[in-house]
Structure formats: C-alpha cells, structure tokens
Design a protein around this nucleic acid. Structure first.
Lengths: 206, 206
DNA sequence: TCGGTTTGCTTACCGAGTAAACTTACCGGG
DNA sequence: CCCGGTAAGTTTACTCGGTAAGCAAACCGA
C-alpha cells in the first residue's frame, strides 16, 4: 500500500534515515524504537534492517564515506609530500570547508548532543574509527613512497584526530562562537600533527 | 536450593566467570547463551547479570585492573623520568613478567582465539581502551611534573600499544615460538614509543 | 531474638536483530 | 502481450541480551 509507484530502493533508504534522525533529535536515541521508526516511515521493521545493519547506522549512515576520504588523502597526494603531511592538509581543508567530520558545520549541535548522550552511538563511532584506521593502514602498506610502520602511523593519526575532534565537539556544545572554535580546531590539529611528526617531547618542528 | 550454606558473593561471581569461560572456550562466545551459562553455574540468569553488566564481561572481567596499572605507572614514577618513559618501562616490565596484558603468558592462545573471533568482544575491548585512556589523561592532568596535552599523549600511547599488542597476538595465534614473539614484542614496543617521543619521521632517538 | 541487609530466585517483560516464506512491482525477451 | 526473473517489502515468528519487581532465604549486628 505505501510507496505506490516509487519502489526506488535508495530513496526509501534515505527516507528512513531522515525520519529516524528527526525522531532521534526530538526524543533522544534510546527512547525511540526501531518499530516506531518503521511506522513513522511507513515501512516494516524488517525493511529498516534490510537497509541498515544496526540501529546506530540510522543516524551515522554517512560515516562510511570518511573511509574514502582517508584513502584518497594518502593515495592522491603529490610525490614530494609525506603521508602524514597529506593527511594533515586534508583535515585542515575539511575544517576550512566546515565539513561535518570536523564538527564545524553550522547547526550540528543537536546532532552532536544526541551522539554524546548515547553510549551505543559512541561505541559505533569507535568501530568506524577502526575501519578508517584499517583503511589507512592498508593504503600506507600499498604505498611505495611510504616506508615505516603503516599500522602504527594510522593508529596514531586516527587517535590524535579523535582528541582534536572531541575537544571541538565539547566547545561547540558549550555554545562557543563558531569562528573561535574553528580557529582553535586548526591550532589543535597542527599541534597534534606536530607531535606525531616530530615527537611529543619536541619543542619546535625541525 | 543450590549453593547451600556458602552464599559468599564474590565466590559465586568467580564461579560464574569460570564456568562461562569454560563454555566459551569449548564452543565460542556467540554460541553460548547467558541462560546456558546460568544453568551450568547453577544460578539464574538474573544473578549472572547482577554480577556482570554485560555478557562480554564474563570473559574480560579482569581487564578493569589494567586501569590501576596505568595510573600507577604515571603517578608512582621517579621525578627525573618522563611520563612517556615511565609508561614504556611499565609495559616492558609487563612483557618481561609475561603478564596477560602483553598476550605473552603461556597457554593463552585459546583465549585469544575466542576474543579475536567475536566482534562484540573486540568492541568491549575498545571501551576498556577508552577507560584506560581517560584514566591516563586524568592522571597526567593532575601531574604537576607533566606539561603538555595529557589527553593527546594518553590517546597516542594507548593506540600505539594496541598496535604492538595486536601484532603480538597475531604471532601467538600463528603458533610462533614464545621467546621469539616476546623479543619482537619488546622491539616493537620500543619502536612505537620512540615514534611517540621523537616523531615518526625521526631516524634515530635524540 | 528481632530487623535490616545482602544474595539470590521467579516471573514477566522489552527491544534489537534474524529467518523464512509470501506478495508486489518493475523489466527485458520471446 | 504474456512470461519469468529479480529486487523491494511484508508478515509472522522466533532468539537472545538485558531490565523490573517482588519474594525467599541467609547472614549480622543490636
């Protein structure tokens, strides 16, 4: 009965995610059940699970894209720039364009609030983190220009960026001015990458 | 009816954990239900959950101890040794005494196999990782001898050690000679900490 | 010996996630 | 124009982890 004519699969998927996100923003992640999401989207529970593996993915469905961004940062860099530096520049660029990954896009606070309040969402973020790390490690292992422990570097980079992002999220949730937060974000990002490249005990680069 | 006379709480807890571990080793983590564990231990399902918050904790119940080890490493160090160095030495010592955390104790392979095969156990490990990281960060923040970004350092150290440990686990599961694995473990540990202290682009320390 | 606390049990429930078998729409080919 | 395959969705029914509430038995201090 519902969805007459438009059986477009990817459209239903997006629709479900939209409806779900709306409900989550209204009432929090834990207080909304999958059945409610399904009903509100005019679809059955099983269909929801056909499009999303876990409840958490209803909210975090665009995160897998980040894996490709990470791979590209390493793969498509110029020959004379090191892998770490390429990743640093990519993240700085993401911050400048206020990309969602940097938590610097306008109006994202309610979304962030939902996430930080739900432990299972945090746990899911960790899994994604691991996937990004694995992708990065793989890319580094395949890169002839890079020598060293790719797995280690990937882990350090991802961990460092998490710290930077968490600080940024906190300031955004505290209601700080976006421009200020963005500036601090850039600075922290650079400090973190300096630490990775030159060591935590180094005073100044090079 | 069961447990006549010996209502010793902590004994029941240990008993449940033992029984559960046995079942997991026999048949894998996912193929054993909580109800089965409860039945085999002669208690009710609810009692199991009164002693352990999650199913995963039945197997990983000694992990919280690690938090204290981490705190002590930073807190109880000599004044002239840096925090990073103190952690490095602690982890080297753990490896030397074949502590479980280093995956270097004898006969641990079946246990490791169970863990690596169950994604939910891995996820739980990540949560513990986060707790250790948070504890470390807190300790560093409270430490007057330390200056710098404690959260960042904690994240880097924990991430680096995970990489080292994962490599060690892999070699142990591949059946490599324990002495060889232990030596490689030490070496990787030192390389990882050199990278943190002096940077990934540094060729030699200092 | 009394009363509170701890420990455990029973019953009942909720919600995430899976399985299987059936329907409905779309689409390309004979 | 029908015929069959495939993709999307439905219903029903189930498993399992985890929680709630209330009761029973033991232990302990007064």
């Amino acid at each position: 009965m519902p969805n007459r004519g438009d059986r477009g699969g990817s459209r239903t998927r997006a629709h479900i995610a939209d409806v779900a996100t709306g409900l989550f923003l209204d009432r929090g992640f834990d207080d909304v059940t999958i059945v409610e999401v399904a009903a509100a989207a005019g679809v059955s529970k099983v269909t929801v699970f056909k499009h999303f593996d876990r409840k958490e993915d209803l909210l975090l469905d665009r995160l897998p894209d980040v894996v490709e961004i990470a791979r590209a940062a390493v793969r498509d860099r110029a020959d004379e720039v090191s892998a770490v530096e390429a990743i640093r520049q990519t993240l700085l660029a993401l911050a400048d364009e206020r990309h969602g990954l940097s938590a610097l896009d306008e109006g994202i606070e309610p979304f962030l609030r939902i996430v930080v309040e739900a432990p299972t969402l945090i746990a899911r973020l960790r899994v994604f983190e691991h996937e990004i790390e694995a992708a990065l490690a793989e890319e580094l292992a395949a890169d002839k220009r890079f020598s060293g422990d790719g797995a280690l570097l990937a882990a350090l980079v991802v961990a460092a960026y998490r710290i930077v992002a968490v600080a940024t999220v906190r300031r955004r949730l505290a209601g700080d001015e976006l421009a200020d937060v963005a500036a601090a974000h850039r600075q922290r990002l650079n400090q973190a990458f300096d630490a990775i490249e030159y060591g935590v005990s180094a005073r100044a680069p090079r």
